[in-house]
Amino acid sequence: MPDDPRFATTRIAERPASAPSWPARLGRRVLRRLPLVGTLLGLGLGVWLIATNDLAAVADAFGRVGPGGLAAIVLVRVSVILLCGLAWGCVVQGLAGLGQARTGAFVLLRLVREGINVLLPVASVGGDVVGGRLLTFWGTTGTLAAASILVDMLFQAGTQAVFALAGVGLLLQVGGEAAQALATWVLRALAVTALLLAAFLAVQRSAAARAAGGKVVKALRRVFRGEPVDPSPPGGSVYDALDAVWAPGRRGTLAASVLLHLAAWGLGALEIWIALTCIGVDSVSFTEVVVIEALSQAIKSAAFPVPSGLGVQEGGFVLLGSLFGIDAGTALALSLIKRVPDIVLGLPALLLWQALEARRAMILPPAA
């Protein structure tokens, strides 16, 4: 009988789930295609910059660096990654739930984070998400791993903003309309960055901001994934870990993490200085090199949807180099030289990532 409850139950059970709403479908498509679109746009910009300039000049400047100069630049990048790994470890040093993770684990996983961010078509935070997951392979709780990534990303972005601000201060001493215009643009971008960082910090420290942030995240999940919004405040597990990280008695270790990140940003300027020295450009002072490094990194970070800042980094070097008398060919060579450590260290980092995943799969028993 059609009105029999048994048949009604069967019809309900066999009824397919409703299709996601069109905003959810659109959001998924945008998120899936954004890295690819960014990659294509970046590659197009990079190819255009190289094609519209003297290729012979770019190749000549690149060749002058030689194997010895490139090796020195790679060693500088290794030192930068080491400092960043130590900074990450300081965030959770001595906390319960850390498991067997020690300094070596944080340095190795920092290498993996960098490799994913610079070589794979993902946004600049893709490697950080993977790094937090891999940290749990050392027995670190998932909540503490997530908290460590959130705080480390905050410190990294915050110190980069400070480094960029220092670069602006040095740039203002150069004078000229172009330098003034660039400094004004960067200062406006830093003002927006400061607001975002303040909100990021508030979400980690303030209970009210956490609740508001949780509602925003759930609303976005409803738009992009078609998931219902739960009006209740977000769970406290990750926030408990954040409270442990931000405990008043840990200010010394957190300050050490900030200082290590600042040192890493400053050390990156050595890569440009070594390259210019090998090329034979002695008209640029080390102070001007710091300006180039600080602002080129800021420009690259502003274009975070573009994987590894493809094309954007090259354009930034051409723009900044023109302020200090560096021709476009040499500026493009500098950008390409900066990418050498990305490849030399990034490829082993990706292999390490896969090795860790394979080892984890061998240890864990198969699901029943």
Rank of each mutant, 00 (worst) to 15 (best):
G127R: 06
V76R: 01
R225K: 15
I272C: 02
A212N: 07
F286Y: 09
I272Y: 07
R15H: 10
W88F: 07
R225E: 15
G280M: 03
F106G: 02
V344S: 06
K300L: 01
G89E: 08
A178Y: 10
R29T: 07
L259A: 13
A181T: 12
G99F: 02
R210M: 12
A264Y: 02
A17N: 08
L70Y: 08
G132H: 00
V258W: 05
F324D: 04
L197N: 01
L165C: 10
G226M: 05
G127K: 05
L98T: 09
V281E: 11
A241M: 05
H261K: 14
P20V: 06
L144G: 01
T143F: 13
F286C: 07
P35G: 04
T330C: 09
P305G: 00
V168H: 05
A207R: 15
V245S: 03
L201V: 11
A244S: 14
G214C: 08
G175N: 07
V174I: 12
S18M: 14
W265S: 03
I149P: 14
F62I: 02
G214Q: 05
L196M: 09
L347F: 09
A56H: 09
V78M: 11
T140E: 08
G139N: 04
V125S: 12
V284W: 01
L350S: 07
P20E: 07
A181R: 14
L45R: 02
L242N: 07
S322Y: 01
G321Q: 04
V65S: 06
G249Q: 13
L352A: 15
A57L: 08
G68F: 14
A96Y: 06
V74A: 03
R110I: 01
V291M: 06
I116P: 00
T193W: 05
V76M: 03
P228N: 13
W138H: 14
L187M: 13
V174R: 15
T253N: 15
G42E: 02
V223T: 11
G115P: 11
G139A: 08
L347M: 10
L109Y: 00
V168D: 05
A247Y: 02
I116V: 14
T52S: 14
V306L: 03
T143P: 10
G126Y: 04
S237G: 15
S148M: 12
D240Q: 14
W88L: 07
A146K: 05
V65T: 06
V91K: 04
V130A: 09
L323K: 04
L109K: 06
L267I: 01
S79Y: 01
A263T: 02
V130P: 06
V290L: 15
G268H: 00
S301H: 11
A275F: 03
R339M: 10
L242C: 08
A358T: 13
I50C: 10
F155D: 01
A202T: 00
L41P: 00
I272M: 03
A361Y: 10
I73M: 03
V92Y: 07
S18W: 09
L295D: 04
L165W: 05
N53K: 07
E227F: 12
I81L: 15
R205L: 13
L336Y: 09
A57R: 13
L75Q: 03
L242Y: 04
G85C: 02
V37E: 03
A328P: 03
G158S: 13
V130Q: 01
E114S: 06
A198V: 08
D327E: 12
L108F: 11
L36M: 14
K215Y: 15
L86A: 10
L108N: 10
A178L: 09
Q156Y: 13
A56C: 10
D230W: 12
K300T: 01
